[in-house]
Design a protein around this nucleic acid. Structure first.
Lengths: 109, 109
DNA sequence: ATACTATGTGAGTATATAATCACATAGTAA
DNA sequence: TTACTATGTGATTATATACTCACATAGTAT
């Protein structure tokens, strides 16, 4: 059983991973890698209701992935740290491994 | 709106991130980094019901994170690829940024 | 002031996830 | 064969998440 410090760390880390674990949120992160955007433009790009996008955005703010500030009527969201983009290569690494394994299975068939 | 290929990729990537986004599963991955283990030992280490651990394990297998094979009565689980461990530094990166920001806020108070 | 726009939030619903318990199965050992 | 152990799965429940709609708020513009 992991000690309580480690358990707390896993909890915090899981929050970050979970905040990334949704296709729509990944699309938002991918969109924001090119620069800050307002909710309106994000929603249009994603093709989902503004209210829904707004919730996803605030979830990612809570997880520490995004930052935001007001600019007139709009609220601008941005990646808090480019390190979030590292997740993409991590996830692709797992997927590539998956493909490799599937090929191995094919050989046997 | 991301094109359909990208949307499919985000979906697959999200599955991986989501498979990691649970404290118990992170604890399992952390435990397995030192080598393959049977369900029994994993469950004891984690301190949760074997049936529950079994479900978490098969979820991670589906996501392509873990592999498994039988060894007599036992089923041995292991990391499919060490690249999964890269996630930990990614998550820690986000958490460190979070702490840094909190310190900035403290200065202003 | 009124009208308008961007955003966020409450309420409700639908679906997904997590956990527990009981039981079935597969392999081991005697 | 019987008894035992490790694992996985069905059924259930509790909780969390995602989404939609309607509305409230904040700022802008006239």
């Amino acid at each position: 059983m992991p000690d309580s410090k480690k358990r707390l760390l896993f909890q915090k880390q899981a929050q970050v991973a979970q905040a990334i674990g949704h296709p729509l949120r990944l699309a938002i992160i991918d969109f924001l890698k090119d620069g800050p955007q307002c909710v309106c433009d994000i929603a249009e790009y994603i093709g989902s209701e503004r209210s829904n996008v707004s919730r996803h955005l605030s979830l990612m703010v809570s997880a520490g992935i995004l930052g935001h500030h007001k600019k007139g009527l709009q609220v601008i969201y941005e990646l808090k740290c480019p390190c979030i983009l590292d997740f993409f290569s991590c996830m692709s690494g797992v997927l590539k491994q998956r493909v490799k394994d599937d090929k191995e299975i094919l050989k046997v068939l």
